[in-house]
């Protein structure tokens, strides 16, 4: 555990030492603010549902997630620092988890800024706290899954751009699958519906916390981290 926090702390430091973190957080806040105030002023809804409800936000997170995690392993591979890190007395799992937690921490920081949106809704009218919180949670879980995808693609290559594009592609596929379910044969539909991010985030945006949705996020996160760890491990055998 100590090693995980040590690595996470270094990664967080690296985020805030470089402009990437600020740029990514700023872009994320700017675009989500746009979505939010669009709902607030144009549609006159004093609520956060629009912000958490599927389409644009999920799309945004599908880009921001991999953008946050693209450097985690690719950069270390590019600079050969991975060799030094992995020959210290830490396990590959500790490295993967530490890095993952740091990226999650950065996103949590961005979401804390988003909480200000909630405050402004509260100023304009009564805020339905339950759905707001569960929507918030849904967004966080989606991001957690997409960040894990980005970490995984970051372990595949030493090129951050490649890691980013590959990560976005996978996230978008996960997101798109939910949209095109009717196209597929009926026997495949439940699986695809489950695989798509859409239905899960919609549940949470409505204020429904279902263990099946939580299981969905947990499955994606765990699979991606496992593949990341396996990829790191595979260096030994090549």
């Amino acid at each position: 555990m100590r090693n995980i926090t040590t690595i996470a702390r270094r990664e967080l430091g690296a985020y805030f030492n470089s402009p990437i973190a600020y740029v990514v957080v700023a872009v994320f806040l700017l675009l989500s603010a746009l979505l939010f105030f669009n709902a607030l002023f144009i549609q006159g809804q004093a609520e956060l549902r629009e912000l958490f409800n599927g389409f644009w936000t999920t799309l945004l997170v599908a880009i921001v997630g991999p953008a946050i995690s693209m450097r985690l392993l690719a950069e270390e591979k590019q600079n050969d620092t991975l060799e030094l890190l992995l020959t210290m007395p830490v396990t590959d799992w500790q490295v993967v988890l530490g890095k993952y937690l740091a990226a999650l921490g950065l996103f949590a920081f961005a979401m804390a800024m988003m909480a200000l949106f909630g405050v402004s809704v509260r100023l304009l009218g009564p805020l339905d706290l339950g759905p707001a919180l569960s929507g918030f949670l849904g967004l966080f879980f989606t991001a957690a899954a997409y960040i894990a995808v980005g970490l995984m693609t970051s372990s595949f290559t030493k090129n951050q751009i490649v890691a980013f594009i590959l990560g976005v592609l996978i996230c978008l596929s996960l997101w798109l699958i939910g949209k095109v379910v009717p196209v597929f044969p009926p026997w495949l539909q439940p699986t695809l519906d489950w695989l798509g991010a859409d239905s899960h985030i919609n549940n949470l945006a409505r204020g429904v916390i279902d263990t099946r949705d939580l299981l969905y996020y947990a499955t994606i996160i765990f699979s991606c981290l496992l593949i990341t760890q396996t990829t790191l491990e595979s260096r030994r055998w090549r």
Partner: peptide, 13 residues
Amino acid sequence: GYLPEGTPLYRDM
């Protein structure tokens, strides 16, 4: 104690 070739260190620290 190991020092790999090319001294790969975190340059941002």
